[in-house]
Deep mutational scan, measured.
Amino acid sequence: MPSETPQAEVGPTGCPHRSGPHSAKGSLEKGSPEDKEAKEPLWIRPDAPSRCTWQLGRPASESPHHHTAPAKSPKILPDILKKIGDTPMVRINKIGKKFGLKCELLAKCEFFNAGGSVKDRISLRMIEDAERDGTLKPGDTIIEPTSGNTGIGLALAAAVRGYRCIIVMPEKMSSEKVDVLRALGAEIVRTPTNARFDSPESHVGVAWRLKNEIPNSHILDQYRNASNPLAHYDTTADEILQQCDGKLDMLVASVGTGGTITGIARKLKEKCPGCRIIGVDPEGSILAEPEELNQTEQTTYEVEGIGYDFIPTVLDRTVVDKWFKSNDEEAFTFARMLIAQEGLLCGGSAGSTVAVAVKAAQELQEGQRCVVILPDSVRNYMTKFLSDRWMLQKGFLKEEDLTEKKPWWWHLRVQELGLSAPLTVLPTITCGHTIEILREKGFDQAPVVDEAGVILGMVTLGNMLSSLLAGKVQPSDQVGKVIYKQFKQIRLTDTLGRLSHILEMDHFALVV
């Protein structure tokens, strides 16, 4: 994948999101292997301009796509893939009243899908469409860049269908997702969380590099694949309309690839034109409109599966009536509230959605109805927002919020430890010299600072030695090549209790 991002070429006709291997024109390309080798690009942008032909009021008969309808489940399912879809609609009884809503608040519980998330729908649909058009064949390999849930859905379907599955996901995604993927037989590649989507090191860039190296491999490409919004247009939206008897006044959905909100909203605009569509985008993402909503100094966020630093091709923002931004604290607070007060075992993005819903639905009156999409299960986040310690460490809970008995030293300040200034190293000294210094002084790690004293990161003896043994660096290389740029900081005025929580999850903390 090139470091400079080429513009994806656009073909003359058809839909841009065809499933299957992508040609340089962004659509299915038939021909000899030699032709494909000559024409197939190194990668295709996940934010390529959409060429979708959908228009409100256009006859369904003019759609270029294969459409399906929700099917009634048999008493005995032939395999677990038949437990994807037909998820329950559940009334939220307490939270709406707590925040003064007059309307009825309903939750579409997508964590009841077989793999635990709304992404099971698009995973199965992308595979079925690729099999139907002859792209996927027995023994082929599926590769997908994902925040985890699409990966789980694909790995689940691949396990049943017999495909090899490789999932490329950023490091910030939970260990629970990784464990589930491994249990399903998927191979996992992790990428830096802070890598831009168009960087060769991003999950998108690495996935395309693997595709170019592995024979008979395919990126189904949830960011561009029409099967993504079509899955929701054909099934999720129809289920909502049936469950609500066609009567709903507002739908609120958090947005990642945009397939969920695009597919549902398009069908609702056709069948229930008075329904307002509300999009939820986390602070630090750029999906919301108008652009002024996205202006923030924050560039990272903890909530998973929603928000991006690019506009995915499948996201149709014209069908969203209003956007709201959400933050991590309210997302996790509301997710825990949904679990504790409503018994809905949902993930953090569901918290984002409901946090926005109780604001947006203030305009609705008694007798009206708001539906929220709860995308995934708490299963993926047992060591994250479900953990009091994690919430404390991230600053989303305060010590006084917890009532468990603490040891005698818990409320003492870090400054009472009488710490001395640490050994520091410059980023320009060599790895070999740094190892000598650390061994001589008896230290395992040291902060790396520039000549102005600005902290650049941390270097550890173990990481340097393993990097040297693996051949990633040489003793003569500058130590700046092996620094940890993500590390926890703590102030002298913070409590030892807070430091204790940090050290339970990290090997060190830097006192500043």
Rank of each mutant, 00 (worst) to 15 (best):
Q7C: 14
E9W: 04
E9M: 01
V10D: 06
V10R: 07
V10I: 10
G11D: 01
T13W: 01
T13Y: 01
P16N: 06
S19I: 07
P21D: 13
H22I: 06
S23Y: 09
A24M: 08
L28H: 14
K30L: 03
K30S: 01
G31E: 10
P33S: 09
D35S: 07
E37C: 08
E37H: 08
E37N: 06
E40C: 01
W43E: 06
W43H: 10
I44C: 04
I44W: 01
R45D: 08
S50M: 05
Q55A: 06
L56C: 15
G57L: 01
R58C: 06
P59I: 14
A60C: 08
E62S: 14
E62F: 07
S63R: 07
S63I: 12
P64V: 01
P64F: 12
H66M: 09
H67M: 04
H67W: 06
T68V: 10
A69L: 01
A69T: 10
P70A: 13
P70Y: 01
K72S: 01
K72R: 10
S73F: 11
P74F: 07
K75I: 04
L77S: 03
P78G: 15
P78M: 01
P78R: 01
I80V: 14
I80P: 03
L81Y: 01
G85M: 01
V90P: 01
V90F: 03
V90S: 08
R91A: 01
R91C: 01
I92F: 11
I92T: 10
N93L: 14
K94F: 01
K94V: 01
G96A: 10
K98I: 14
F99L: 07
G100F: 10
L101G: 04
K102C: 07
E104N: 08
K108V: 01
E110R: 01
F112Y: 04
F112W: 03
F112G: 09
N113I: 04
A114G: 12
S117V: 05
V118I: 06
K119L: 04
D120A: 13
L124P: 15
R125C: 08
R125E: 14
E128F: 10
E128H: 01
D129T: 08
D129R: 03
A130Y: 01
A130G: 11
E131N: 14
E131S: 12
D133A: 06
L136D: 01
L136Y: 07
P138K: 14
D140H: 01
I142A: 04
I143P: 01
I143W: 04
P145S: 04
P145H: 06
T146Q: 11
T146D: 04
T150S: 05
T150V: 05
I152T: 11
A155C: 13
A155G: 08
A159P: 04
A159I: 01
V160D: 03
V160I: 05
Y163L: 04
C165G: 12
I166L: 08
M169G: 06
S175L: 07
E176F: 01
E176H: 05
K177V: 01
V178R: 15
V178G: 09
D179A: 08
D179C: 11
R182T: 14
G185V: 04
A186T: 10
A186E: 06
E187C: 10
V189A: 12
R196P: 11
R196V: 04
S199C: 10
P200E: 06
E201W: 15
A207K: 01
W208Y: 13
R209S: 09
R209L: 08
R209I: 09
L210D: 01
N212W: 07
N212C: 11
E213Y: 03
E213W: 01
E213S: 06
P215M: 08
P215R: 01
N216R: 01
N216W: 01
S217A: 01
I219T: 06
I219G: 01
L220T: 04
D221S: 01
Q222G: 01
Y223W: 01
R224A: 10
N228D: 01
L230C: 15
L230N: 13
A231W: 01
H232L: 06
Y233G: 03
D234W: 01
D234P: 01
T235H: 01
T235P: 01
T235E: 15
D238Y: 08
E239V: 04
D245T: 06
D245C: 13
D245F: 15
G246N: 01
L248N: 01
L248W: 01
L248M: 12
D249L: 01
D249W: 01
M250S: 03
L251H: 10
L251F: 06
A253D: 07
S254Y: 03
V255T: 10
G256C: 01
G256T: 01
T257G: 01
T257E: 05
G258L: 01
G259T: 01
T260Q: 08
I261A: 10
I261G: 04
I261W: 04
I261S: 03
G263P: 04
R266E: 06
K267R: 07
K271M: 08
C272S: 13
P273S: 10
G274P: 05
